[in-house]
Design a protein around this nucleic acid. Structure first.
Length: 830
RNA sequence: GGGCGAUUAGCUCAGUUGGUUAGAGCGCUCGCCUCACACGCGAGAGGUCACUGGUUCGAGUCCAGUAUCGCCCA
């Protein structure tokens, strides 16, 4: 035991020991009922680490440590989410390159030392290689911080969402979805990001308020208002509300589009808002998702004019006049809008000036330009969005899950209930899990989509861009009569929705998987209930016919001191490492553990200081408790000592119940409150007796050690470093492999009120000395306690300790109305 | 516009089935070098529980409404 205990250096010291001792290794020989399996969220490694990571991962670690001590073999893996757009974007910026699939692979490629201003086009394989290089570096940064934080992760069990195991699981699950009809491809209007050149799923949309303008156009005298006049050549109909008397006479007739001279029908549909603009709107293919609905339900033709690069297509759709169209071809949407306004003004079809408005426009959440709607062939997984029966089953799954806190279930119900389409899982990107199939090419070189060429599960993972389907050779790729690989990759959620299967060794290690699945816990944040949590439920429902886990623990946000969500774009992100270094990991964990489950928490450095003080106090109080020689086996005899242990028994019961209910903050609060009473009252009262000799001193020594042993176990999940340090002073092994405390040995039949009452009397003595502004060493010449006989009896049980602690020379107990009279003597010389 | 949550001391937060005088820590003020701890110890001041109604013998707690803040969605 050190003379002056310190917290400094404990993180490095114990992380190394835990690694070499394999303290947190999962024991895969135990049966399922003795396992506690955690579906750890794989952090996006290309993103920056912020204090929110530390916060929520600590919450998970608390449950891992509690369950480990409670006798479970804890499966606590770590995954890295390294595929998808964030990684691609980071590689582009970091190296100044971009992926161009038409560039051939260069085996000797080395990235530029300085990112070039104009991004260097490189092959897909070189690009993916760079993605791997960069994510490997990122993973090390994350692991270092997580280790410093003291996460009891079993680092033997890690995965990355782009590694072979994950790609195999994602492709296998997809092929099974396809075989069962749960996955399908469809040519359909799709929300499209013209910069990323990829389709975007419903879950990744956001609305942004943007300035726009209503342009009033005349269609053969019928005036409509539109914010997108550039889509006029894509107009296929006009639409008004069926009850709108102004337009009822026109229903069934046709009008002619200005400039382009196309005959379009006037139709009725309930989604047309009579109060908006002139009450009649033009339907274009496609300006927004309402156009898609109208187009589908009114069975209209397609006149596409916007390409996947966001520019107007070079040739006009059938029946659209070429002359004015040529003025728009090749322009961006914005340029085309300016030009067509000029043309409409010149022709006199624009009525009045455009009226500026602001309106919500759909964006990809990571995108910079408004989404367009283009028709493309995409892969979908059925999620109940187009199937009421499936939606009901998935709502039932949500009800089977135990939510912590319970009100988070509502978010799931709202999302599932509001779905309006299946889950789009294909992305036109490069760094991701490829769709594992090819298509036969017909005599004209067109793919035959109806009969995809599939690999066997044993061949997975495959890359159809570099591997060849059974019965073909590489020289047949892309030639008529040959084959072509599906060019798309899966959305990152399509892989991460299989995290329990990937981490648990689904099909690769059936014995392991059988001991883990379904998992016990999915910890995650609330804003991805609709994405990650729901998607994982969908996949497990399809593949296994059950929930992927029994419990979901939803953690809150960390808000900045102005109660704003921390976001990189706002520049208010708190980075965790400086606080870990400055205050120590136990202090940061204390702050995290103090937050009620699911509650958004304001970052407050003061709470870190409080946590550090607690950890420091634990070291010093332990040093005191262990300073007395360990007495031979015997009883705890003194009433004050028995009172302490009896009170501690209650704390153990409450803390255990709180952890079992996924509420570590309550367990901490109870333990902490007891601990400060232990330090401030019990230790002060017992000090004099403990330093003496004889049976009463031995009773104190025993009680101190029993209490310390229990407290260390109770604090171990929150303060793994300080507790392990103290444990090492007098115990063997790790406190983190010790058993969670029970009330055995604490229920000695004592009365906790003895400690309460003695503490109250001691407080009055201290108050008298404080008021007299004198030292606590000042003797009390007379202490008169007046109270009921019952309470006086409690005082007398601790009388000797009180006299010792208060420097009391004479104590008198009197029956009567409660009062405490303290008479002070001379302060001792300094 | 809809959903969920929050609103308690200057600050960060507890307050578990409604029940004496609403708690803690930080900060502040005043003291104390007391043999575990000055990275400490003791004491004190500080609140109309957001607002308005209602239920009740009794409401921080339950109900309705309003306001403000946060997140998610439209």
């Amino acid at each position: 035991m050190p003379d002056r205990p310190t917290l400094d250096g404990l993180e490095a010291k114990w992380d190394a020991v835990w690694a070499s001792e394999q303290t947190y290794a999962f024991d895969r020989t135990v049966a399922r009922e003795d396992v506690y399996a955690i579906d750890t969220p794989p952090p996006t490694v290309s993103g920056s680490l912020h204090v929110g990571h530390v916060f929520s991962y600590t919450h998970t670690d608390l449950m891992a440590r509690y369950n480990r001590m409670a006798g479970k073999s804890v499966f606590y893996p770590m995954g890295w989410d390294d595929n998808g757009l964030p990684t691609e974007r980071r590689v582009q910026n970091y190296y100044g390159v971009r992926c161009d699939p038409s560039v051939p692979y260069d085996p000797d490629f080395t990235p530029p030392a300085e990112p070039a201003k104009d991004q260097l086009p490189i092959s897909r394989r070189n690009f993916v290689d760079l993605c791997h290089v960069l994510t490997a570096e990122d993973e090390q940064v994350f692991e270092k911080v997580f280790r410093q934080l003291g996460l009891s992760v079993d680092w033997n069990h890690t995965y990355a969402t782009i590694d072979d195991r994950s790609r195999r699981a994602a492709q296998r699950a997809f092929l099974r979805n396809l075989a069962r009809g749960e996955a399908y491809a469809q040519e359909a209007p799709t929300l499209w990001d013209v910069d990323f050149r990829t389709a975007v799923a419903q879950a990744e949309l956001e609305d942004r308020e943007l300035p726009g303008a209503y342009h009033r156009l005349s269609f053969s005298g019928v005036e409509i208002e539109t914010t997108r006049p550039e889509l006029l050549p894509a107009c296929v109909a006009l639409v008004a509300h069926p009850d709108d008397e102004r337009y009822q006479p026109l229903f069934g007739t046709t009008v002619t589009t200005p400039l382009f001279g196309v005959q379009v029908p006037v139709l009725a549909h309930a989604l047309a808002d009579p109060a908006k603009g002139s009450g009649i709107a033009m339907i274009c293919t496609f300006g927004d998702t309402t156009d898609v609905t109208w187009w589908r339900e009114l069975d209209l033709p397609v006149r596409s004019i916007i390409g996947r690069d966001g520019r107007i297509l070079p040739t006009a759709p059938d029946g659209v006049a070429e002359a004015p169209y040529a003025e728009l071809a090749g322009k961006t949407v914005k340029q085309a809008q300016r030009r067509i306004v000029e043309l409409l003004q010149a022709s006199g079809d624009l009525i009045g000036e455009p009226k500026p408005i602001t309106h919500p426009v759909k964006f990809y959440e990571k995108g910079d330009r408004p989404l367009e709607v283009v028709t493309s062939r995409q892969w979908y997984i059925r999620n109940g969005g187009r199937d009421a029966a499936l939606r009901e089953r998935l709502l039932e799954r949500g009800a089977e899950l135990t939510w912590h806190p319970s009100y988070m279930k509502t978010r799931y119900d709202n999302w599932v209930g509001g779905l309006n389409g299946d889950w789009l899982i294909s992305r036109q990107r490069f760094f991701g899990v490829p769709f594992p199939l090819w298509y036969r090419l017909d005599a004209s070189g067109e793919p035959v989509f109806d009969e995809p060429l599939l690999p066997t599960e044993a061949q997975l993972p495959i890359d159809p861009a570099s591997e060849v389907p059974e019965g073909f050779t590489e020289d047949q790729r892309g030639v008529p009569g040959g084959f072509a690989g599906d060019p798309d990759v899966m959305d990152t959620w399509a892989t991460s929705s299989l995290s329990p299967q990937i981490a648990g060794g689904w099909e690769d290690d059936p014995d392991l998987f059988g001991r883990l699945f379904p998992f016990d816990l999915r910890p995650q944040a609330h804003e991805i209930i609709r994405t990650w949590l729901f998607a994982t439920v969908v996949r497990a429902h399809h593949e296994h016919g059950q929930l992927p886990w029994t419990d979901a623990a939803i953690s809150g946000w960390v808000l900045d001191p102005d109660r704003k969500k921390m976001a990189k774009s706002k520049g208010n992100v708190v980075t965790p490492t400086e606080h870990l270094d400055k205050h120590g990991s136990d202090a940061v964990r204390y702050w995290s553990a103090s937050a009620r489950p699911g509650t958004d928490t304001t970052f407050d450095e003061n709470q870190l200081k409080v946590g550090r003080r607690l950890a420091m106090k634990l070291l010093n109080a332990s040093k005191f408790a262990l300073a007395f020689p360990e007495a031979a086996d015997g009883e705890v005899t003194e009433p004050l000592d028995r009172a302490l242990l009896e009170a501690l028994a209650q704390v153990v019961e409450e803390a255990t119940a709180a952890f079992a209910a996924y509420d570590p903050s309550r367990a901490l609060e109870r333990t902490e409150t007891f601990f400060w009473t232990f330090c401030d009252d019990y230790i002060e009262l017992v000090k004099g007796r403990a330093y003496a000799e004889g049976p009463p001193a031995e009773s104190a020594g025993r009680a101190l050690r029993i209490a310390l042993d229990t407290l260390l176990r109770l604090f171990a999940p929150v303060l793994p470093f300080a507790t392990e340090e103290v444990w090492s002073w007098w115990r063997s092994g790790s406190v983190h492999r010790a058993s969670w405390p029970t009330t055995d040995g604490l229920k000695t039949g004592g009365d906790p009120a003895v400690l309460d009452v003695a503490g109250e009397v001691l407080a009055q003595v201290r108050k008298a000395k404080s008021n007299a502004k004198t030292s606590m060493k000042t003797p009390v010449t007379s202490l008169v306690v007046t109270d009921s006989p019952e309470r006086l009896a409690l005082v007398s049980l601790a009388q000797a300790d009180l006299v010792n602690a208060g420097m009391v020379e004479a104590i008198t107990l009197v029956e009567g109305a409660p009062a405490i009279e303290v008479t002070l003597g001379e302060a001792p010389p300094k």
